[in-house]
Design a protein around this nucleic acid. Structure first.
Lengths: 229, 229
DNA sequence: TTATAACCGTACTTATCGGTTCGGTTAGGG
DNA sequence: CCCTAACCGAACCGATAAGTACGGTTATAA
């Protein structure tokens, strides 16, 4: 009889490779499962099945289910960090930089995968505060810091007029995103924003920002700051 | 002799009332538990204990744990709806209305209870999409609609200059809130924003908005809309 | 006073799932 | 060719918690 190649018990899924590669494959499968159905809703058993593996193999590579999640989140945050860094140092004018940054940000925030990951992290932050913290510092906080730094530099170049670069940055980022993050978090799949809608929103947010904070065109009065409460 | 008030078996917690009142008490206790420790982390047993009740009583009043949560969320959203309605029709000037609305909103969003509820709903939205939807329509969407309506009216009064009231409203609300919602969701307790910080942020957001969208002071050029991409 | 319904405490049922163990199998390096 | 480590499948363990059942108790209304 055939020693290998046949179906020892039933039909066997195509043989999978060994070694360290297995680990990465599991990571991929698990991420897809978590993002697609949620963390709690995904069992280790189902991950094993989807990866054509056994639970023992899962636990050989990862200490626990939480550990598996942590690695996925960390990988994504690292990726996020990398993506954000490139956005600000393009040497273009302020409006262009803001537009570019805003577009990327809004696109990212309306991507289903991003939203799904965010939802999971928010939910698991109760049990594991580090998760939320790492995603926060790699995402929103980092973005704020980046833009704040850019604005401070722009100020010294005379491109930006404003007392508080950090506040201005936060205002801009908020105006770009609006409650789009919450939309994804609170409503099921839904069509993500169209590219056109994104463009419109970012454009208006940039205009809003520039109207107040860019160098005032010669001849116009300085932006009126006081509104008597 | 005292017919009641003694301790039949051991010491008994102060006798609790009967009837429909019990239901409301359970609701209160459960809400505190859910908000304080999270939904999954709270057992029906612990709610019963905290309410001085038995599980049977819980299940007499509520079909299931999910049912209990739903009622709590619905009660809160109703409350939210009520609170928001009063904010816009004060008849004051646009800057004042925006300031008032912004302050209330930012305060609400940085309140621990609000954040805790939001976190729960986001987490449970996977299993129960209606929860998220109801909170979304009662909260962010409603706020947007309200402000949009106000701006449209303001436009007809000549107080607001802008093509897209809905977009302007969303931009303002976004700039007021920034990523403050995410801060609460992703980082543990943390001190909520101080009243002073809230005031500063709202003030600047209002100024930003007014600079672009309010009637331009006589003599100044019309706000420059075009930035050649 | 008595019937009834809400109630308490406790124990039980049932189900899920993370994590472990084990016996047999397969791949790949020496 | 064979030894070893990674692997599979399946059974198992332990914990947790939702929901139910039950027997005894107390308030309240008739």
């Amino acid at each position: 009889m055939s020693t290998a190649g046949d179906t020892p018990h039933r039909h066997r899924p195509p043989r999978v490779p060994r070694g360290q590669r297995r680990r990465h494959e599991i990571l991929i499968v698990a991420e897809r499962a978590f993002l697609g159905q949620g963390f709690t809703e995904t069992t280790m058993q189902s991950i094993a099945a989807a990866a054509g593996a056994s639970k023992e193999t899962l636990y050989r590579h990862f200490k626990s289910k939480d550990d598996l999640l942590i690695e996925i989140v960390l990988a994504r945050t690292a990726e996020l960090r990398r993506a954000l860094d490139g956005d600000v140092d393009s040497g273009a004018g302020m409006a262009a930089v803001l537009t570019h940054l805003g577009r990327n940000l809004l696109t990212a925030v309306t991507t289903p995968d991003t939203v799904a990951l965010l939802r999971i992290v928010i939910a698991e932050t109760v049990r594991n505060p580090d998760l939320g913290l790492s995603l926060y510092t790699a995402g929103p906080e980092r973005t704020n810091r980046l833009l704040t730094g850019y604005l401070a530099a722009a100020k010294s170049r005379g491109e930006f007029h404003g007392d508080d670069a950090a506040l201005a940055a936060s205002l801009f980022l908020g105006s770009v995103l609006g409650n789009e993050p919450l939309v994804g978090l609170l409503r099921r799949p839904k069509h993500p924003m169209t590219a056109k809608a994104i463009e419109a929103r970012v454009g208006e947010a940039v205009t809003l920002f520039m109207t107040r904070y860019a160098a005032t065109p010669p001849g116009a009065a300085e932006a009126a700051p006081s509104r008597t409460g």
